[in-house]
Design a protein around this nucleic acid. Structure first.
Ligand code: FES
Ligand code: FES
Lengths: 144, 144
DNA sequence: TCAAAATAGGACAATTTTGTCCTATTTAAT
DNA sequence: ATTAAATAGGACAAAATTGTCCTATTTTGA
């Protein structure tokens, strides 16, 4: 569904949101540990998210990554997915034809678009805040 | 969503079904041309589908690939996807945790499972026959 | 000022996926 | 029988994705 990079990116963003909500800055090491992700690879992804203004990075000792509190409620999964995986999730054809196109649809077009739209809706309606709410009370997990 | 191999596999199977329905056997060359897929790579995928009893292959001159007419109506997309991509579509976690697990769910579990189940339903309820019906009348396409 | 701790970023390596090429085998037609 | 046309399958190559390593830079705090 999503690339590994995107999966790591969502998990990392969620953890950063969780920490930021408590006023804590998250270090790369912590993020990688708490999301069970490879450290250096995660670093690259965080750079990408930072360039896309989804997270903020602070260099230097006591630096790390954070998300402005007021944004946690507004950042949607769709933004993260788009920043890392691009628009394939939203525009791709289920059978791999060059872009989905209703004017020359593949045989699964109608059924596929319905599912893809549900997925888009889901991503556009799920905020980082929503992602963190179950974590705090031990209802959901970012690693096992 | 699906791997390239799987996309090619679905397109190839659909074309073979279309030809078999008219009593014609499809050659690798024709299949690759009519689905705009790389010939040798498609050959490997057809072998896989053949081993999984989804299509039949006939060696020798005038050989090719075909699907028993009575099966066209019964072969579901889910079987093709499973034969090529395995069970990741059905069991995978949206955030990449080792297998989806409702007892230790990731933060998108509930929403993701709903979409994944819709996708599964779609694949399990779409037959090759249904895939071909629009092709014959020029309503849908296997390439552009 | 200096050392330590952290991110930034370039270069590289490993793995997986995608794709090609060549030879063997099978079958039909001559 | 021989040849031609087709799939089977192994070995290999290319490309994309995933992951590592090292150095530079930034910042804090002693
Ligand atoms: S054309 Fe294939 S999904 Fe729209
Ligand atoms: S645990 Fe992640 S989707 Fe079910």
């Amino acid at each position: 569904m999503f690339s590994k990079a995107c999966e790591y990116g969502i998990r990392a963003s969620t953890y950063i949101a969780l920490q930021s909500h408590e006023g804590k800055r998250a270090s790369l090491k912590d993020i990688a540990r708490e999301t069970d992700s490879p450290v250096a690879f995660t670093a690259k992804i965080l750079q990408q998210l930072s360039k896309n203004k989804i997270i903020d990075s602070v260099q230097g000792a006591a630096g790390g990554f954070e998300i402005v509190k007021s944004k946690i409620n507004h950042i949607k999964l769709s933004e993260i997915v788009y920043a890392i995986d691009g628009d394939n999730v939203y525009m791709g054809c289920g059978l791999g034809l060059e872009k989905c196109n209703a004017n020359k649809p593949c045989p699964v077009h109608d059924k596929f678009v319905a599912i893809r739209d549900d997925l888009r809706d889901m991503l556009e309606n799920t905020t980082l805040y929503e992602m963190t709410s179950g974590l705090e009370v031990g209802l959901t997990y970012l690693k096992r």
